[in-house]
């Protein structure tokens, strides 16, 4: 301690780290502000491109983007999937939450009556390579197809017995359970508001025409 004080104290020792921390923080804030819009657009384009695989018969160019107020009081973006015949084919709900390593973002496909899951897509994840990142594989995602949307999904380590059970990935239990928790939270929060919206006139629907 005496030696540290002799050389100018803690600030004298660490001033470079403090200055660099502030400088780099400012640079990163600038980079984030500049590039985040473009990154968000990329994610949105990807969302539109996978909607037909989440809701059978949906036409991405006819997708309607809606904002609904969830039970938690926050506005959430959802997608109303429309087919080429102009019929309502289902819903796509973006959802996110903490995974094992970092945030996981999902797209959940639902049937028009909001009774069953029709597809699941992992939009973003940073799970452990070769273990947790297998949540992106169709082999895992397809396990959610047809599962009921009105009861919580339960992850199990053996062959599912009940209709709301899904088999977790071997060696990636936490990542698997994170996915089911994100799906459960999103449906608990948004299923009823979407249902109400489906039966109302849906004022202010913003139709986004994409070129596909």
């Amino acid at each position: 301690m005496g030696e540290t004080q002799q050389k100018g104290g803690y600030i004298g020792q660490a001033w470079l780290v403090i200055v660099l921390g502030l400088l780099y923080g400012g640079v990163l804030a600038g980079v984030q502000t500049t590039l985040s819009g473009r990154a968000a657009d990329n994610k949105k384009d990807e969302t539109y491109s996978v909607i037909p695989s989440l809701v059978r018969g949906a036409d991405e160019t006819k997708t309607i983007e809606l904002m609904v107020e969830g039970k938690n009081g926050k506005e959430a973006r959802i997608y109303k999937a429309i087919g080429a015949d102009a019929g309502h084919k289902g819903w796509v709900v973006p959802a996110g939450g903490q995974g094992f390593a970092d945030r996981i973002e999902l797209l959940i496909g639902l049937d028009p009556a909001l009774t069953a899951l029709t597809g699941l897509y992992v939009l973003e994840q940073r799970e452990t390579p070769a273990l947790g990142d297998r949540i992106t594989e169709a082999g895992f995602r397809d396990r959610f197809n047809g599962k009921p949307a009105d009861q919580p999904i339960v992850m199990v380590k053996s062959e599912p017995k009940a209709e709301n059970e899904v088999r977790a990935l071997t060696g990636a239990t936490i990542s698997s359970e994170s996915v089911s928790a994100i799906v459960n939270d999103a449906l608990a929060n948004l299923r009823e508001p979407i249902g109400r919206r489906a039966h109302s006139a849906a004022p202010g629907e913003a139709l986004r025409e994409t070129t596909g």
Partner: peptide, 24 residues
């Protein structure tokens, strides 16, 4: 403190590279 400064500097440029790739 040199390793701390190295790591701070490297992490900053890695984050910039990561954001750039996600955007472009």
């Amino acid at each position: 403190l040199r390793i701390l400064v190295f790591t701070l500097t490297i992490a900053t440029f890695v984050t910039i590279a990561d954001k750039f790739l996600a955007a472009y």
